[in-house]
Design a protein around this nucleic acid. Structure first.
Lengths: 134, 134
DNA sequence: TGGCAAGATTATAATGATTATAAAATAAAA
DNA sequence: TTTTATTTTATAATCATTATAATCTTGCCA
């Protein structure tokens, strides 16, 4: 639950945080900070972009939120922190989850001597919709 | 050869471009645009950062150079465009190549209906040196 | 409950990477 | 050479993100 998630992190329960965490909960749209801000602003007119950045920063640090750096111009966020890749369509620019069996990092690479803590897999191409629609 | 690479792309052979492409040739340090600029500035005092950005842009577009978005604060570049991953050490911040057997994208993921043209694999953790030295 | 202190929010400014602009320079073709 | 399209350059503009500092709130405790 949203409240538990914040409490677990020792964070105060503010309306802004509750709204941000609620919006992210189960969200598969991979919003940017600004998109989160724009979606919540109508209901929370006092909301500041800085608060969105602060909150996602805390969530990413604590492992509750995943940062997606598939595109150079802005970061996106994904509340699904289980291992999975992301697909960026160069036609429609959509950013989609790639549900996958977990990637076996250790067997894929010769990581002798390295400690691999996390990974990101980004795939670029043309998505289903764009392939059909053309 | 450097000259051929530029000619193949239909680009004029300017000293700046030759210098940038030469610096990148075989370079495994994954420099940022600013690092390229700083390394060349002493020998090419007239060099502008804009020229570095213009040149890497052309090279990336043409597939001669790979853009690395492993860190959110700046882009890095890699002249090795054969499939391989990258490792970012959270201790010493070094960015290293992960020589790997090619990743079998199609078998890893259910990409039915998607056209995968390219991918990036980033691994985060602690590198050999930092593990030993501590 | 009311007051307090730590932490949060806000508006705003600052930062810093990247991109745009437009004038001056130059490579390459005739 | 002359010419022209391209390139370089200095500089300004853009835009995402971070820092700042004043104001406000949550959560705790008397």
């Amino acid at each position: 639950m949203v409240v538990d998630k914040l409490k677990k992190l020792g964070l105060k329960l503010t309306p802004q945080r509750l709204a941000i965490v609620s919006l992210l909960q189960g969200n598969t749209r991979h919003p940017s900070a600004e998109e989160i801000y724009n979606e919540l602003k109508p209901q929370y007119p006092s909301l500041s972009l800085a608060t969105v950045y602060n909150t996602v920063e805390v969530l990413v640090r604590s492992g509750e939120l995943r940062e997606i750096m598939i595109a150079a111009d802005r970061r996106h966020f994904d509340p699904n922190v289980t291992p999975h890749g992301h697909f960026l369509c160069r036609s429609c620019k959509s950013l989609q989850d790639l549900d996958a069996r977990p990637l076996e990092i250790e067997t894929l690479f010769d990581l002798k001597g390295y400690l691999a803590e996390d990974y990101a897999l980004y795939i670029y191409g043309i998505c289903q919709k764009c392939l059909e629609g053309e």
